[in-house]
Amino acid sequence: MARKFLVTVLCFIGIANAADVLKNSNIEYLDAARSALKTAYESGATLKAPYEYGKAKGFYKIAVEESSNFNVDKSNEAAKKSIEWSLKAIEKASQGEVK
């Protein structure tokens, strides 16, 4: 009986930790996307690269929404796309369009 209880507790701890890791990685993605978007904004992307900035912003919003619906994979994907577009916006804003 005691052994069963111990196994159940350990399983519970394991699942909780795994969920934590998943959650953390999603939060990390979201955090990276947010900070990339912030950098893009600060580098003047709203004026110099508004299209790229808009795309980054759109994907970030999608990532946040998917995260709130516990769609971790979709959220991570959208966050990655947001980071990608933020980088494009930063590049364009700092040295202009890529030629």
């Binding site: 299209y51 900035y53 808009g54 980054a56 912003k57 796309k81």
Partner: peptide, 13 residues
């Protein structure tokens, strides 16, 4: 342009 980009990303999603 900003709204255009956002619509594109939403549509993609």
């Amino acid at each position: 342009p900003e709204e255009y980009g956002m619509v594109e990303s939403y549509l993609e999603s």
